[in-house]
Design a protein around this nucleic acid. Sequence first.
DNA 1: ACTCTTGATAAGAATTATTCTTATTTGCAT
DNA 2: ATGCAAATAAGAATAATTCTTATCAAGAGT
Lengths: 139, 139
Amino acid sequence: MESFGEACRAADLKLTHQRLEIYRELAGASDHPSAEILHKRLQKNMPTLSLDTVYRTLATFEQHHLVKKVETVGSQARFEAQMTQHHHLICDTCKEIMDFQWSSFDVASLPEAIHQWGAIRNKNVTIYGTCRRCQSLKK
Amino acid sequence: MESFGEACRAADLKLTHQRLEIYRELAGASDHPSAEILHKRLQKNMPTLSLDTVYRTLATFEQHHLVKKVETVGSQARFEAQMTQHHHLICDTCKEIMDFQWSSFDVASLPEAIHQWGAIRNKNVTIYGTCRRCQSLKK
DNA sequence: ACTCTTGATAAGAATTATTCTTATTTGCAT
DNA sequence: ATGCAAATAAGAATAATTCTTATCAAGAGT
Ligand SMILES: [Mn+2]
Ligand SMILES: [Mn+2]
Ligand SMILES: [Zn+2]
Ligand SMILES: [Zn+2]
C-alpha cells in the first residue's frame, strides 16, 4: 500500500493522482471489478476521471506487473491487484470471483507429460459453482 | 461425431447444413478457435456462411451443452467441442491452448474451506508458460 | 413428392467494450 | 520557478459481438 509510490518510481511511471486512486480502489476491492465498475466507483470522488484513463492505467499497471487481468468468459475484462499466488472461485449465476489459497496444490508436481510442452510459468485452479447467496435466492 | 444429429433432435434444434459444418469444424479442431477463425476456415467450402451465423450457432450450442466457451484474457472468445473433463496449457506468446488430462487432480478433494462458499460444479487447472516452438523462436 | 409452418440464415445496422487521436495539463528534473 | 516529456480528457475510431428484418429451408403433415 505504501510501496505503490516506490513501484512507480522503479518503473519510471509518474505518480499521478489518477494512478494512485485507481490503484487504491482496485487494491481495496475483493471482487475483481471491471474497468467500468472501477470507473463508476472512482467517479464519486473524481468526477472528471475518464473511462479511457482507467483502461489505459490498468494496461500500464499490467505491463509493470502491478495488477493482473483475470480470465473470464464474460465480455468485460476484470482486474485484481492481488499479485501473490492464489486461485479463483467463480459463481455461475452472479459471476462473483473469490480468491482462495491452496498451498498443497501449489507445491504439487504436474503430470510428467506437461514438461514436454515447454517452460511452465504458473499454474492456477478455477472452481465453478453456485455461491451460497445465489443458492438461497433460487430455492 | 454421429450423435450430433441425435443431439440436435433431442434439443429441438433443426439440423441445418450450417450447424453440422460448424460443429464438425470445431470438433475436428484442437486449437480452441475463435468464431472468426472458424468462419474463415468454413468459408472455403461455404462462401455464403455469415460470421453472425457462426456466433449465433456457437451460442446455441453452448446453451445446449454441445460446445464450451473457453475463458481467456484475449479479446475474442474461443470455443471447443471437447466436453469431457480436461485442463488447459496456454502459451503466453502464441496464445495456443492445448488440452491435457490430470485424473489424479480430478479425483483429489478440495480445501475444506471451499465448501462453505457454495455448491461446486467443476474444477479446472490452467497452466501458463511458453511452448517449445515459441521458446526456440526466441532464443 | 407437395405444402405449410416455423425456426434458421444472411446482410447490414446497431451495440458494447476497448483503443486511438489530439489538445491540454501535470509531474518532476533542472 | 521553468521546461519538457509523459499523462490526461474528450471525443472519434475500431473491434467484437448481437440485433433486426426479409428471405430461406428443415421437417411435419398430407
Ligand atoms: Mn484473485
Ligand atoms: Mn480444451
Ligand atoms: Zn452467486
Ligand atoms: Zn507458443
